[in-house]
Every structure is written in structure tokens, then in C-alpha cells.
Amino acid sequence: MAYDVNGTTVEHDEEGYITNLSEWSRELADIIAAAEEVEMGEEHWAVVNFLRDYYEEYQIAPAVRVLIKSIKKSMGPEVGNNKYMYELFPYGPAKQACKIAGLPKPTGCV
């Protein structure tokens, strides 16, 4: 199973998470998002970038409540709340956004 990024294949698991984290690119993110039927806007990117920074710093993808709390702090309560985050990523702000960000499924998600 793989995504096709301009002719290059990027392997993913049965749920769509890429296998090799270093193969991520913004083009790939758009392709994963399209497969998820998510149209990437500015706020989607902000969340994806936050997740990538968090992973880079702490070596984990944060749990959803940690993500929302942090987004609330950095982008304000209009974005950093449960309802809005689920509007951005209907299949779960942590799960789905992590997939688009090229990260593993957050620790604790089944």
C-alpha cells in the first residue's frame, strides 16, 4: 500500500499512516488529506505544523486533549476547542491530523 507523490511511492500501513516518517512532504500531506476528504486550509496547516514540531521536540504525537489545549494556547479558543477541531478533522483531530502530518498514530489511540 502506497501513496503516489509525482511518481514516487510512499509506503503506508493499512490505516494510511506512512511507514517511514522521513518521507513526508507538503505535497504528500495534500495527497493524504485528499484521500481523507479534508481540504487543507490555513488552520489545518497550523495544526499539522504544530504536530510535526511537537513530535520533533518530544518524539511523540500528543494525545487529542493535549493537542487541543496547546492549540488553544497558541491559536486561541476559537480554534482550540473540541468542536472546531473536529470540524477541521472530522475523523479526530489527533488521529487524522497525525496521518496527514506523516506521524504515527498518537499514543493511546486504538
Binding site: 511537537y54 521536540e57 518530544y58 518524539q59 511523540i60 500528543p62 494525545a63 493535549v66 496547546s70
Partner: peptide
């Protein structure tokens, strides 16, 4: 192996 020592610094968020 993953350097999970960085992850201890995330515990405060949890």
C-alpha cells in the same frame, strides 16, 4: 532506537 528521553519533557502537558 528511538530517543524517548525527550518524551519525559512532555509529561507536564499530560
Amino acid at each position: 532506537l528511538k530517543n524517548f528521553s525527550a518524551t519525559y519533557r512532555a509529561l507536564g502537558d499530560y
